[in-house]
């Protein structure tokens, strides 16, 4: 098929944009699993996913915790997940940043409190999954300048940055007060914003990919499959 000369020229000039759009989807994600014990869950049992918030320089985002929870609740074999805030409010003040158990021995001690044990049983919690991590921008380059004038507005330039999402999930079995495993995920991706009059953001979905892969791995881990 032969295109008219003008059309071919326009398509060729758009090649860098197409390449960038394809690359924007490229996020590399690695998942590591370390199993310490047998797992499995009954139909009347639930899991709760909690973000670690003890460190002062960052905190595990509530949106990421919710995303992982939604992911493992999806599908035919989806798990029953207790929402984080509902659990924290019901357990207040035992799972706040300063009071939350850091080790399984602390959980065992905490469960000797009658109210805590009752509330935990009321929710039917079998596993507590502790998420810890954050997403950071590790390399930023380029610049875009925009101008506004009475006759119109426009931007010109090119910007790019690399995001790195690093999260770990520790799984505690509430029945035995044991740590049954750890799953870590690391996702990196490059985002671009070329601007010729209008800026076109081509964003790598780094955190979303980390959430998806971690959620899937957690689900199969808890199910014991």
């Amino acid at each position: 098929m032969k295109y008219p000369e003008g059309v071919t020229g326009k398509l060729v000039s758009l090649v860098p944009v197409w390449v960038l759009m394809l690359c924007a989807g490229c996020t590399s994600t690695t998942v590591d699993e370390f199993r310490q014990g047998e797992t499995g869950i009954a139909s009347n049992e639930t899991v709760v996913i909690l973000g670690r918030r003890q460190v002062s320089s960052y905190e595990t985002s509530a949106d990421f915790v919710e995303c992982v929870g939604d992911r493992i609740a999806q599908g035919a074999n989806g798990l029953s997940v207790v929402p984080e805030q509902e659990f924290l409010d019901a357990m207040f003040p035992w799972f706040e940043p300063r009071t939350a158990p850091l080790r399984t021995q602390d959980l065992a001690r905490l469960m000797t409190e009658e109210q805590v044990a009752l509330t935990m049983r009321g929710f039917g919690i079998r596993y507590i999954i502790w998420l810890d991590g954050f997403t950071e921008t590790i390399d930023r380059s380029g610049s875009i300048s925009c101008t506004v004038a009475p006759g119109g507005a426009g931007c010109f330039g090119f910007g790019s940055w690399e995001d790195d999402a690093s999260f770990s999930a520790r799984i505690w079995d509430v029945n035995n007060y044991n740590a049954v495993g750890t799953i870590s995920t690391d996702a990196t991706g490059q985002s671009y914003v070329p601007a010729i009059v209008i800026p076109i953001p081509l964003i790598a979905r780094v955190e979303a990919n980390a959430c998806q892969r971690l959620g899937d791995q957690l689900k199969s881990f808890v199910l014991g499959s």
Binding site: F92, P93, W94, E96, P97, R98, T99
Partner: peptide, 13 residues
Amino acid sequence: VVALRDLASTFAL
């Protein structure tokens, strides 16, 4: 609000 929750948890315990 997080600081107030922290106060409540520390005070209560």
